[in-house]
Design a binder for these strands. Structure first.
Lengths: 339, 339
DNA sequence: TAAAAGTGTGTTATCGATAACTCAAAATTA
DNA sequence: TAATTTTGAGTTATCGATAACACACTTTTA
């Protein structure tokens, strides 16, 4: 690898002069500048970012930690983050926690040793608390995405889970459904809790009694087999509609229903949180509460970069993005029983 | 930030001794080791990877350069790459070229200055040649994914585009179609060329005449509006089936057909290359040539790590992964004209 | 014409870690 | 007991860049 010393020697100047040419700092005669530039090109010199970062205490690296890279919500978010990062001259160090605290912790350690300038952190859940605290202890700026963590005071970009859920359930109620199941994520994730709350509020608001036996607690990525829905369909009065708390659960639900020979929306209506990204457009079918995923990433990155480059002592900001109810063909008016 | 010097001072030893404790090298008495370890924990010491890399000339960073992070093929590939990287102790530096050579070049420059140990490179197309040459010039090991670049001798993991295309088209021909359109990517991308070749071979093999007016050349991400298909449907004898050269184009095609009021497969059959990832399972509809995306990433990463850690002079390897024809409900027997 | 200001460049120390070498004290051997 | 080996450290140089200071030589100013 060519270093600044190789350039210096060949150009007959000191290393410092080369450094000044590279960074356009200090005073350099036009003649020397040209000569150094020429040698740099001849030798295909590329500055060593490691050495530079070691001195400047700045890596221009930002870590993006998400929980599931195959979920279109997060990939779209990643696009937003990447675009904003690139615009500001940062590179993205990528990490995928798989909703797993241990893997997340591993990555946090990596992140700390890499000396990234900041972290865009989509936490696995409440237990991520310790991992975030670890970042705080080492004074690494971070912005929390999508899920709020109790006890952590930080910039955060959230979706309005409660309202989104309320809207979805209200839509079902308006269609005449009153046996609405909720297939939810784990309760140690704020979005799962809030979607549950929204679900309950909608019931309350429309004078519908709540039936806890209609609520299934899984994980956001844990729809393994269709046995998850068995209990629902063994109820005396099974659900006529299902609210899946995210897109991945919806996929599982739909598959499961198909295996049971149930038609959507003919036999049962289905709604879910989160849309399905660009490939979802192939068959826009599910009624969803769509979140502005790209903005999650973009805004989050902007906040983070402000933190990094600006005044770190600014008070924490909390941004809540609305979701949009998109009514498609997976929901329909509850038909009177044809007995 | 705590450094080994802080530890050394507090533990009453030299920095070198601390370094030895960290790396378990050299001879250290059990007593000193314990004392140093204790101080390290007290001060929450985390080694600075930058400084370490500067000395060792190794960053344990691998850059993953893909063309489209919102495409499920690439996200699944990324998962495979990430899993393999993590297993071997590497972190992923992420880059998204958007099928854009200029953006790709920008990232290559970043990559070079970051001194990554290697690059997993899914090139935008033939013009990526110069960017790859740049890596070669600086002796950065890399593995090329998905698209072969003429003139570049390197490890490469490919899908069998020709065979996959042949199978898809043969399937359509077997269903009685003989007016089969191809909506293809740009011809400076090897997969687009090969899928075109496969398309032609299938025609030849089954004694079907080729009609160039049935071939539309777009880009793999370039399905902007449905005017792209106008020409096809203004033909005297319009197609009864369409072969989209990747999943994103298929999305565009399907949307366009829907806008024209055409039923799939009732009015027209559609097939495409690449499947739709986990969320595609919500409504498995398109007949596809599915590629083992996860393996692309995993195998590619394994090859790369072998290159990095092993003998760099090993001859270039070329791995070709088969695709699987999955017949679903977007294709059906061509019905006789009901005039 | 001497002092002051400006210009262009070099020297040295530093960022945080490690490799290579050195060396005193303890343990072992002859 | 003297010579040798082993043990457990410390010192110095280095990775590649930059900050801070130094300094000779011009040019300007009084």
């Amino acid at each position: 690898m060519i270093t600044i010393y190789d350039i210096a020697e060949k150009a007959g100047v000191s290393a410092m002069t080369v450094s000044r040419v590279i960074n356009n700092t200090g005073r350099i005669s036009e003649e020397t500048r040209k000569r150094v530039r020429k040698v740099m090109e001849e030798l295909h010199y590329i500055p060593n970012a490691l050495a530079r970062s070691l001195v400047s205490q700045k890596t221009n690296l930002i870590s993006l930690l998400i929980t599931d890279i195959t979920n279109p919500f997060y990939t779209t978010l990643a696009r937003g983050a990447e675009d904003a990062a690139k615009k500001a001259g940062y590179r993205l160090l990528f990490a995928n926690s798989d909703e797993d605290y241990v893997k997340e912790k591993d990555y946090v350690d990596m992140i700390l040793s890499t000396r990234v300038d900041g972290v865009l952190f989509a936490p696995a859940g409440d237990h991520s608390h310790d991992n975030l605290l670890q970042l705080q202890k080492h004074q690494i700026p971070f912005v929390v995405l999508d899920r709020e963590i109790p006890g952590i005071d930080a910039d955060v970009v959230l979706g309005d889970s409660k309202e989104g859920a309320r809207n979805l359930v209200a839509h079902l109620i308006a269609l005449g459904h009153h046996r609405i199941a909720l297939v939810n994520g784990k309760q140690d994730v704020s979005t799962a809790r809030l979607r549950y709350t929204g679900y309950k509020e909608a019931h309350l608001l429309h004078g519908l009694a709540l039936d806890e036996s209609l609520v299934v607690h899984l994980g956001f990525r844990d729809f393994q087999d269709d046995s998850a829905l068995n209990e629902l369909f063994q109820l005396n009065e099974p659900p006529t509609a299902i609210f899946a708390a995210n897109n991945m659960l919806a996929v599982g639900v739909i598959q499961s229903l198909r295996q049971r020979g149930l038609q959507v929306p003919g036999d049962i209506s289905v709604v879910c949180f989160d849309d399905f990204g660009p490939t979802g457009a192939i068959n826009p079918f599910l009624t969803v509460a769509a979140q502005p995923a790209y903005q999650f990433g973009q805004l989050g990155m902007q906040l983070l970069i402000e933190r990094i480059e600006g005044d770190a002592s600014v008070e924490s900001r909390r941004i809540m993005l609305p979701s949009e109810l998109i009514i498609r063909s997976s929901t329909q008016q509850l038909l009177p029983l044809t007995t």
